[in-house]
């Protein structure tokens, strides 16, 4: 593991809002091509940390490098090198499938030619070609979710951040969504994912669990289960967050 390329390097990340410490000396590394699960109870400070890693918020202190860029001074470069998808916001409902793809490609500075070529490839892969000119609002949720993920990695970012990507979707779609995640990771894209589904924590290469602004545990799912004497990640999560 140690010889692997580090793509996110966080050392003593602190973020304060007034006197409230949302992130209290977080230290961790994420490797290239890894699926990294970022878990924690509501209010533990996950969203604050993700916003900093995405270049949307400035840390109070620490050394934070994302895709080789400094989270204090190079936030624009960070944004260009990452993709982001959340359950709440992903695609524009009143644009078509093709328009959404073209819009995101354009934002990330891709040429028209490149967008056109890659759109064909993507739609074929997703078996979406017949839906190309449909409005997003007319698509079922599961399709939207898959398309949103594909759009988030359309510009071939080094890292993709997924904030509860599978909330509310049916169990079959949820699983086919993870196929896309595995495929992206195999193609060298680092996947940084939050979820409330504990079975999905098992699909990650490594998992960190935040409690009260700190990282309380970080290991492979197997390692965490052994260390906490638990049968599954649900038990691990319960033991760590309830401090049993």
């Amino acid at each position: 593991m140690n010889t692997r390329e580090v793509i996110i390097d966080v050392e003593n990340l602190v973020k304060k809002f007034g006197s409230f410490v949302a992130n209290d000396h977080l230290t961790f590394q994420v490797y290239k091509g890894e699926i990294f699960g970022f878990l924690g109870a509501n209010g533990a400070g996950k969203t604050t940390a993700i916003r900093i890693l995405c270049g949307l918020s400035t840390p109070t202190a620490g050394k934070i490098w994302v895709a080789g860029f400094d989270a204090f001074h190079q936030t624009e470069q960070i944004k260009r090198n990452i993709g982001y998808m959340s359950q709440r916001f992903s695609l524009y409902d009143d644009l078509t499938v093709a328009e959404n793809i073209a819009f995101y490609g354009g934002i990330y500075g891709m040429s028209r030619k490149e967008i056109k070529e890659k759109t064909e490839v993507l739609l074929n892969k997703l078996e979406f070609s017949s839906q190309k000119n449909k409005l997003i609002s007319d698509l079922p949720l599961g399709w939207k979710q898959k398309l949103a993920f594909s759009v988030a990695i359309f510009h071939n970012p080094k890292i993709v951040f997924l904030d509860e990507p599978t909330g509310g979707v049916d169990p079959i779609t949820r699983r086919s969504f993870w196929d896309l995640i595995y495929e992206a990771a195999e193609n060298g894209i680092t996947v940084f994912v939050t979820t409330h589904y504990m079975d999905e924590a098992e699909y990650c290469n490594r998992v960190s669990i935040m409690v009260d602004g700190k990282i309380a545990a970080l290991d492979t799912p197997e390692g965490l289960k052994n260390a906490w004497n638990a049968n599954n990640m649900d038990e691990v999560f319960l033991k760590i967050t309830r401090k049993l």
């Binding site: 924690g40 109870a41 509501n42 509860e164 909330g167 509310g168 409330h196 504990m198 649900d234 999560f237 319960l238 967050t241 309830r242």
Partner: peptide, 10 residues
């Protein structure tokens, strides 16, 4: 319990 963490859900 939608969007609520596993412990709070319980």
């Amino acid at each position: 319990t939608t969007g609520v963490d596993a412990v709070s859900r319980r």
